[in-house]
Design a protein around this nucleic acid. Sequence first.
DNA 1: CTTTTGACATGTG
DNA 2: TCACATGCCAAAA
Length: 100
Amino acid sequence: MNPFTERVLKTIRSIPPGGVMTYGQVAREAGNPRAARQVARILHSMSQKHHLPWHRVINAKGEIAIKDDETALEQQLELEDEGVVVINKKVNLQDFQWRI
DNA sequence: CTTTTGACATGTG
DNA sequence: TCACATGCCAAAA
């Protein structure tokens, strides 16, 4: 597994319950500011295995960026379970974005 | 080989 | 707020 992916996973695992990070933010922390898309791809393929809190990663607008409705709903429920308020698939980043 | 397609971001108008 | 352009890069077609 390449070092960038390692850092992405490590960064996501550092997000506490009740907090969220954006794809771009994760990419920056992992050392490649322009790799937001790769972060998304990594989650799509590896979320199952690495007991990863993938549901705490959303897009820059604070929205759940998933196409598949079932998975999107699952993410919303997980977030609400942790106390994150989700309205119409959107989260208020001012309140819930996690800052390193 | 090239083109298309994303669980995206950011700047501009 | 929305639309559009551009950057990025891997996987699929």
